[in-house]
């Protein structure tokens, strides 16, 4: 039914992204998020965090990158829901895994998990229109 062989149960290959200080700061600025906890370690510590951490817009964008990398340029993202868990700090490694949980017509529902050594950073659910045309 759906495009080039996307099926319920398909497993996406893992993507490992090192969380560097550069990624945290560049992501925050590229998403126009100037909250100090995303670029100023002292301010982050004063607010109870050990260091700066990824902002939600960057995390959402990285989930989008994981999906775009797998489904390719012809796929269209219809919706994306992300829920944050453990914050991602410089020095962490973010490991994305995902699987297709439903296919309806040309739309695939994909569950994405982004984990750190210390636990779940993000749980995402996306609806992707895959190769309909």
């Amino acid at each position: 039914m759906t495009g080039p062989g996307v099926r319920t149960g398909d497993v996406l290959p893992e993507l490992r992204i090192p969380v560097t200080r550069t990624l945290v700061v560049a992501g925050a600025i590229a998403t126009r998020d100037f909250q100090d906890v995303h670029h100023d370690p002292d301010a982050a510590r004063a607010k109870g965090s050990p260091d700066v951490f990824l902002n939600i817009l960057t995390t959402g964008g990285l989930v989008g990158r994981y999906l775009a990398g797998h489904f390719g340029p012809s796929a269209v993202l219809r919706s994306l829901r992300v829920r944050l868990g453990a914050p991602a700090h410089p020095g962490d490694e973010l490991v994305f895994t995902g699987n297709v949980t439903a296919v309806r017509g040309t739309e695939a529902t994909v569950e994405v998990l982004g984990t750190l050594r210390q636990g779940r950073h993000v749980t995402g659910t996306a609806v992707v229109e895959v190769g309909g045309g």
Binding site: L77, S79, L80
Partner: peptide
């Protein structure tokens, strides 16, 4: 701190 985000495009 932001915790959740849902977007529809």
């Amino acid at each position: 701190v932001a915790t959740d985000c849902e977007q529809e495009y």
